[in-house]
Nucleic acid binder design. Structure first.
Lengths: 229, 229
DNA sequence: CCAAAAGTGTTCTCCATACACCCATGC
DNA sequence: GCATGGGTGTATGGAGAACACTTTTGG
């Protein structure tokens, strides 16, 4: 490769807003910065894009290195290009958002990742750089997209009850939904497999468990089907 | 500012897919490249982001320098970060799409811009870099967004007839719409001002002209209104 | 037997769709 | 007078929203 001199190049970073759903709450994964700038401040996981990797690969690599997460839903969000978003350098950030099946992940605990913490999105501490803004855009995207693309399932365990799905939607959308209408609509799409299996160790009537049929969804999409909740 | 050495930085460019609506056709504005790589090939207007300007500003500047267009709707599309998208360098591109009121613009003709040509989107020549891909993503975005955000008006003159609006939607969405239902729906939103003025110099019955009321739309949005066509 | 959540149908309203004819104008 | 597009209303079906009680299980 040849490089252009004479024109200084901005730095190029990736940042990830990682969401999980746990204990009925939507959470975001943050890292405490160990180096300046913003040393000791919470931040979204991220880092610089290397010269020989795609931007998507950089996002996945940073996620792995900083949080230990590997198999996650990851999608590009927006590129933040303000001149002053880094205090002493010129750095543009391609932001991503990620969705993690927290309940499944929890079973493979500690990795060699740095200290990370899940914060409820309603109780996020002060963040470095323009990360509050990035997080806001990520939340808006999640809220907008969850209604017409089946990404909500990326936040639930593989096997889930309909009420868990409903609560997820209620938390993300910020309003309550009618139980009967919700179930009717979801089941009418015929994308959930009834696993004929029940919840374990709940102290009330156990709910049936379902699984999202991704293959079927993809097949339907090619025939013009539109998911909508 | 301080700069990081030791880690080579990718180049950072912007590219714009500029759309216009003319003679009943959706068109895209292309530039013939005068320098290598891809010398003599058609490409989307674009160029490198300067160290002291935001990425948005870079897109606007390139648009002005290369096409003479200034007052256009401009929105970030996606960032393309493949390693091999430039043949001899590492360049990441933040892509934008722009919408131009071609009929209005036409009255202020020649600028000092380079030679540019409007191509119907169905007859685009071979393009440089990954610009075919960028253009495809831009078209998908336009088609998806035009239905629930009133951006179609950015492609029409300020004063337009309902049939022009309908034809615009038909071209973008790629299917025909029912005239009565379309008019009913549009007028029911109460976002178009009847200018009580008629089309001039048409060789048939002249249509009433309307104007999109942006202020009113913005007011309604804050009260939970959703545009949809 | 009590607490907690699971599960289940019907009615009504509204919106999307389908559909055909007369009107105004320029040539 | 004819060609070209402008402009208008109604009927039907389907989807979304509102709404309350019985069932199951564990403690």
């Amino acid at each position: 490769m040849t490089y252009r001199y004479g024109h200084p190049r901005p730095g190029l970073a990736v940042d990830c807003a990682v969401f999980g759903f746990d204990a009925g709450d939507l959470k975001v994964l943050l890292i405490e910065r160990v180096l300046p700038p913003f040393q000791g401040t919470w931040a979204l996981p991220g880092g610089f894009v290397r010269i020989d990797e795609t931007v998507d690969d950089a996002a996945r690599r940073e996620l792995r290195e900083e949080t230990g997460l590997t198999k996650v839903f990851l999608e590009q969000l927006y590129t933040f290009g303000a001149v002053d978003r880094h205090p002493s350098d010129r750095v543009i950030s391609v932001a991503y958002y990620a969705l993690v099946k927290l309940a499944d992940q929890r079973t493979h605990p500690a990795t060699d990742a740095r200290a990370t913490t899940w914060f409820p999105v309603s109780q996020v501490p002060p963040l470095a750089f323009d990360h509050p803004h990035i997080l806001q855009v990520a939340l808006d995207r999640l809220r907008g997209k969850v209604r017409y693309v089946p990404i909500g399932f990326e936040l639930l365990p593989q096997k889930f009850a309909l009420s868990e799905l409903q609560h997820l939607y209620e938390v993300i959308l910020g309003r309550s939904l009618d139980k009967r209408n919700f179930r009717k609509k979801v089941l009418a799409m015929d994308l959930l497999e009834d696993l004929e299996e029940l919840q374990q160790s709940v102290r009330h009537r156990a709910a049936r468990l379902y699984r999202f049929n991704l293959k079927k969804y993809q097949r339907l999409v090619t025939h013009g089907f539109n998911f909508e909740l």
